[in-house]
Nucleic acid binder design. Sequence first.
DNA 1: CCAAAAGTGTTTTAAATACACCCATGC
DNA 2: GCATGGGTGTATTTAAAACACTTTTGG
Lengths: 169, 169
Amino acid sequence: MLEEAARRELLCATGLNDVYLEQLFTFGEPSRDPRSHVVSVSYMALLADPKRIAKPASKYARGEWFEVSALPPLAYDHALMAEYGVKRLKSKLEYSNIAYNLLPEVFTFAQFEGLYELILARPIDRRNFRRRILTMGLLRELPSKLRGAHRPAALYSFNKRSLQIIEML
Amino acid sequence: MLEEAARRELLCATGLNDVYLEQLFTFGEPSRDPRSHVVSVSYMALLADPKRIAKPASKYARGEWFEVSALPPLAYDHALMAEYGVKRLKSKLEYSNIAYNLLPEVFTFAQFEGLYELILARPIDRRNFRRRILTMGLLRELPSKLRGAHRPAALYSFNKRSLQIIEML
DNA sequence: CCAAAAGTGTTTTAAATACACCCATGC
DNA sequence: GCATGGGTGTATTTAAAACACTTTTGG
């Protein structure tokens, strides 16, 4: 199975396990690898915590993190694949709860909003966004609060931590 | 190239040429073909006129038409592929001008609306729909009219006959 | 003049947008 | 008491939805 192969490969290369995985596109230009005709089925993985890739558990990890805005030169057409993934993520953010893969179990609304602003690469009006998301019932507020240097922030969780397709922006 | 292979195969099997083609999904379950492990990259083709598949030009055509609501039993996981294609078309209809592949150069608004109602499988309010589509500038009205048994209908064409992504419904 | 399909406007309702101040805490 | 980030409300604008009659033609 392709997805299982992708998971195996990901585990092997980065030590990552149990991540959201989504097939993106299959590339088959004969010229993409000058040596032989290779067909590649690309997948995108999402995870909330970059530290997971640096854990001691993954002794043989070769993964490294880059900002998508500052990728190093990639082999073959892999930059295309990355671009495709970002595009898919951006659009899926607008009609699903896919963000649950990119946040911890529990988070503040500021984190949630920050994620959207980061990925969509545009500022979002806090009040309007909050109203929309909360009336939509995407999140549930937890009784506890995050205590920190400033006013304590309400904590939230996703109502469902499985992919829900919902028109949301 | 995968898309070229799909076009070749389509031409060979149905005599169809110059159609819109879009990659859908790549299936790789080992069990999908009991004899050997086959990976299939599925594509969807769109064409306006079903008669194109029955033309004399395609002597060796083996294509046959079915309503998606009444497909015969298909080999392997091909029913899944068809379902996937319908899903993709439905959603793309709502945020692009992909419909230009499913209508002749010139058509009436009733045809246009009928296409949407058919694919989305729900009735659409004529007045609201018309207003939205026309103010959106998706179509351009032609000077001539279609004369028939009843009141002549205005004729329209798509402004652009290439895929445009536009939030439209 | 009748049947059939084409065409058109208004009112109501809901959603999106724009926008600025107060609150709670740690230091 | 001040710096910092968290939290909130209203008025305006825009878009969606609901809804039914008139027009034009051929026969």
